[in-house]
Design a protein around this nucleic acid. Structure first.
Length: 289
DNA sequence: CTAGGATCCTGTCAGC
DNA sequence: TGCTGACAGGATCCTA
């Protein structure tokens, strides 16, 4: 799924299209993908679009919210009713990369359609792991995912991060970074990139990470995600920034993710792909110890 | 409590 | 061509 930088890119994009707009009809094409009562938000104006970790919150003026979690393959695609040019600033698509960004919608992967006066917002999700959940804003803090969500890297000190690692001495560093209860926002791309930044092998036991390495891991988590947000997320976004560029983190900035067999920029070693914590994992054996 | 594996679901790709 | 298994930018559930 989109990780924190992609969800933040989506948040910024959707704010532009949804804030102050009244939601019309909600069409649920897949019951599994929509939790709660859509009538509680139909006809209500969007107040704000927020983000908590990888979860998106579309708040309405009646104090209800639609929480969106894209999981692995979710996409949010805004189609203007009056501008058919998908490349123009009036259209937007982001999330898991696929031809859906340019496809006729709705299609077989469309799970929910949210209709507004000037456009339609399509929630597409190939694997149906994602969902939209309608609930009162004041109950968001009690939601199972939100309630146990750890701090984002910018919200923790080196000491906080070190203590957190210390609670999971036997687990591989990457498994610890991926668990949203420990630290919010990292997924498979940015966990690998953070480990590279710190020079730490993703399969090292968290308990064996030195204080200096821990500091670099936290710094890496912040920097790789900041860099990605600044570049509009990974290649999955067709969202165009004011300067006309689109999300290009993977090609421009990723050092190890999907670069197996290529040369490490830092030491010239060959990047390898293995399996850690049940996930495809990329690192440089030359400079990650 | 932690750690690790299976599981949810659809689609694609490599290998026979 | 058709089949099979592995894998996928996530998180939860179950077991030990």
């Amino acid at each position: 799924m989109p990780e924190l930088p992609e969800v933040e890119t989506i948040r910024r994009g959707l704010t532009r299209f949804l804030k102050g707009k009244k939601l019309g009809r909600v069409e649920v094409l897949c019951e599994k993908s929509f939790w709660g009562d859509s009538s509680e938000i139909e006809g209500v104006v969007v107040k704000e679009v927020r983000r908590k970790g990888k979860a998106l919150l579309v708040d309405f003026e009646n104090e209800m919210t639609a929480m969106v979690h894209l999981r692995m393959t979710g996409q949010m695609i805004w189609r203007s009713l009056y501008d058919p040019d998908l490349e123009s600033e009036n259209n937007f698509a982001a999330g898991h990369p696929s031809e859906n960004f340019e496809a006729e919608l709705p299609n077989k992967q469309t799970r929910v359609v949210l209709e507004f006066e000037d456009g339609k917002l399509f929630f597409n999700d190939q694997r149906k792991f994602g969902f939209i959940k309608v609930m009162p804003i004041d109950e968001v803090v009690n939601d199972d995912f939100i309630a146990t969500l750890g701090p984002e890297p910018w919200e923790m000190s080196d000491a906080d991060f070190g203590r957190m690692l210390g609670k999971h001495k036997q687990a591989p560093v990457k498994a610890v970074l991926l668990d949203q209860k420990n630290i919010a926002g990292l997924g498979n791309i940015y966990a690998d990139e953070s480990c590279y930044y710190a020079g730490v092998r993703p399969d090292r036991k968290a308990g064996a990470v030195t204080e200096k390495e821990a500091r670099l891991l936290l710094e890496g988590a912040r920097k790789v995600m900041e860099t990605s947000i600044d570049s509009g997320g990974s290649t999955m976004a067709t969202y165009r920034k004011a300067d006309g560029t689109r999300g290009d983190y993977l090609e421009k900035f990723a050092k190890v993710f999907r670069r197996e067999g290529k040369k490490c920029e830092r030491c010239g070693g060959e990047i390898v792909k293995t399996r850690v914590a049940g996930r495809g994992t990329h690192y440089c054996p030359g400079c990650q110890k």
